[in-house]
């Protein structure tokens, strides 16, 4: 749609601006202030310049947790996006069965994150959980509280369980937007199933897929509650992701200055990646 240039539209945006400034800008300024000081208590702080940043950037523990984080986000995207597309393709086209599928798929999304952790904490246990018990019965040695690989895979499986429905729902909405005439034309041309997917469905899915990738990247990059409840970051630090490292630093150790510097670095990484995705979306809109 062609938009009318009119700066009076600012009045409509003003409430949002004030609200978000209150809940985002003020805290952000505070974080910047904290990041250059060593804080012992109210009114008892020393200016230390950029020491915290230097410290954080060279901290090997943080670098390790950053790497783990990128690995986790990449794994999440690599599994959930194809699986979500597959599920969306299998869903019924309409009627009561489609509504039922939508509702059932949406259920994991509506469970509080700590309860998701609790569900898997119980479900994956070897003694009282169906999943862990089943794996052990099959002769596999599986113990997510003791073995780092098992813990990692359980967190990944939990995330796939939790969030693939979102990708599926988004893709389903994209598929529904394709006019029936496209499929009829393909049928007349005797196009194969693959050709239909590759040349009709996939191009139309591009926009929702970018949204899905963006949402999944952002949310997996700040994952905190679920692994915290499930594994507490362990065994060792095998499932300690960035948010948890940060929260431990800020709330657990009350290391305000260092936590603030770390927050800013974290925020800058997210900002860069999000900007790249966002530019990609708006660019696609323009090409259409």
């Amino acid at each position: 749609m062609r938009k009318i240039p009119d700066n009076r539209a600012w009045w409509l945006v003003l409430p949002v601006l004030l609200l978000v400034a209150f809940s985002a800008l003020v805290p952000l300024m505070t974080v910047v202030n904290y990041s250059v000081q060593d804080i012992f208590g109210p009114g008892n702080a020393y200016y230390v310049g950029t020491e915290w940043f230097r410290d954080v950037l060279r901290d090997e523990r943080l670098q390790a947790s950053l790497l783990r984080q990128f690995g986790f986000s990449a794994a999440v995207l690599a599994i959930e996006i194809p699986l979500g597309i597959g599920i969306a393709l299998m869903m019924p086209k309409g009627g009561i069965r489609a509504s039922l599928c939508l509702i059932l798929l949406a259920i994991p999304l509506l469970i509080p994150w700590n309860v998701v952790g609790t569900i898997w904490q119980i479900f994956a246990r070897g003694d009282i959980g169906l999943f862990g018990w089943g794996l052990n019965e099959l002769g596999l040695s599986y113990n997510y509280t003791g073995d780092p690989v098992d813990a990692w895979l359980t967190v990944l499986l939990m995330d796939v369980w939790h969030w693939t429905p979102l990708v599926a729902l988004l893709c389903y909405s994209g598929l529904r937007a394709i006019p029936e005439a496209f499929y009829q034309a393909a049928e007349i041309d005797r196009a194969s199933r693959w050709a239909v997917f590759r040349y009709i469905q996939l191009p139309r899915l591009k926009n929702v897929l970018v949204i899905a990738v963006l949402l999944r990247f952002m949310d997996s990059f700040m994952i905190y509650t679920e692994p915290f409840v499930l594994t507490g970051g362990g065994p060792g630090s095998s499932t300690t992701f960035l948010s948890q490292t940060l929260t431990t630093m800020a709330v657990g150790q009350f290391d305000l200055g260092r936590a603030a510097a770390f927050s800013l670095v974290y925020f800058l990484i997210v900002l860069l990646v999000s900007w790249l995705f966002f530019t990609a979306i708006t660019h696609m809109d323009k090409e259409r």
Partner: peptide, 10 residues
């Protein structure tokens, strides 16, 4: 605004 710990450079 005490809690914001303003410093001059920031």
């Amino acid at each position: 605004l005490d809690w914001m710990n303003w410093t001059q450079p920031v």
